[in-house]
Design a protein around this nucleic acid. Structure first.
Lengths: 237, 237
DNA sequence: ATAAAACTGTGATTGAAATCAAATAGTAAG
DNA sequence: CTTACTATTTGATTTCAATCACAGTTTTAT
């Protein structure tokens, strides 16, 4: 049995729809109608889900796993725009006229996605205007986040940018334990660098400083423990 | 007679609604209904329209004039996020739950705005789902723009950022004439600096270089003529 | 368990924009 | 039209992240 089928058996598509914020106003029956429009797919860690320039005529919702959304800069480095996880969606752009993707999407770990054809989705939006309101809300949140990112990138305050990323990951992936907040980092040092427009080495150095100050602790390369979250929060404003 | 009244006489509110992209799918009668929900206001150059932290329970559409949307950074500098002009709107955030503004808005010149209460606007959206699609489209466009901005800020390529701003202003405000594209700059050097996260002096120096290269020409401090737009376009990709 | 591969940390150097400091040009108010 | 004021340009210096180089560590695949 393929991973794909296994996954479908387990959730009968419903997980996709029900765990997604944008469908949260729908009742059981309406949800059922949405679910009937969904097809699913599995990607292994490292696989490209979307390539910049390809046509993208589906709305894609992440059911499990996580992905990075990135573009390539002039110099060939990747600029990571978002790290999306369970419940996040993308491909909502150009709902009206289909256009090619302006970004790449790569699975950061094994990931299951749900897809709805844009044409189907449009019909859905006209039938349930509340979904639109939810999407607008989410788009507004993203705008907020990007605006803050730009604000941070605008200042020369490199420490604040690094600390802000660590806080973001702490909020998304952090688990409290006796030693502090244990955070599974979704990105390597280089990934973090590409996310906030710095270099690998600078991330290393800034994180080492945070360790010297006792604010964080490193557990291997992929986990950190935040010992003093207030210190991080203060530094970013 | 106040400016406000004069303005209302002139356009009977209709201009606001009709010249705005998001209402473009509505017919005359529907437009009339929208117009009945609108109130208007005039601001002089330099006046603050919205202050960060104040409650913002209106959708605001710019009828004439232009404004800058900005936040204050830690160091007290302003980070300009958008320069909005006729037909642009803001305040669409938190349509559901009213929240305080996360930004300031200041009139860059004499400006007339149209306001619709968020609650009224929500009703409108439920009645005309196509408006939602239009708004999503616009929000997507803004996301696109911010994503590109981040991509540019991510690179250390300062020239590209400066050139991109000049191109943006050329597209928005440029008028072709015999000498090239005449652009009325909406922002001072310092304003431009605050828009793209550099300093006043760096903007001066980069613009002087562009002049030495014959790519632009300065007409006083507030206008430029772009002599070689291809050169600018090439530099940003 | 082990070895290969990938990632990370750190020192030395470089380079480019920030900062500091005047001088100059443009704008606005009367 | 003149004057005062404000914005801009330009030069000298400083600062800090990028870059280069390489050693050390962790992860992964077998």
């Amino acid at each position: 049995m393929s991973k794909n089928e296994m996954c479908c058996m387990r959730c009968n598509h419903e997980l996709c729809a029900s765990r997604v914020q944008i469908f949260s106003e729908l009742n059981k029956e309406e949800l059922g109608r949405v679910v009937s429009l969904i097809t699913r797919k599995h990607y292994s860690k490292g696989e490209l889900i979307i390539i910049e320039g390809s046509t993208l005529d589906n709305l894609i919702i992440i059911n499990s796993g996580q992905v990075k959304i990135f573009r390539n800069t002039q110099e060939g480095k990747e600029q990571i725009l978002y790290v999306f996880t369970e419940g996040d969606f993308f491909g909502e752009k150009n709902l009206i006229k289909n256009q090619v993707a302006t970004f790449n999407v790569e699975a950061l770990e094994d990931t299951n996605i749900c897809m709805i054809k844009k044409s189907d989705f449009q019909t859905l939006l006209r039938k349930f205007p509340d979904i639109s309101l939810k999407i607008m809300e989410e788009l507004s949140n993203r705008l907020d986040k990007l605006e803050s990112t730009i604000q941070k990138m605008g200042t020369r305050n490199v420490e604040a940018r690094v600390n802000a990323v660590l806080l973001e990951f702490a909020n998304k992936y952090g688990k409290h334990d006796a030693r502090g907040i244990l955070v599974d980092l979704p990105l390597s040092r280089e990934g973090i660098a590409n996310y906030i427009g710095l270099t690998r080495e600078t991330i290393s150095r800034k994180m080492s400083l945070l360790m010297d100050e006792g604010i964080i602790e490193m557990v291997g390369y992929k986990k950190i423990i935040i010992k003093n979250i207030q210190a991080l929060e203060q530094s970013i404003e």
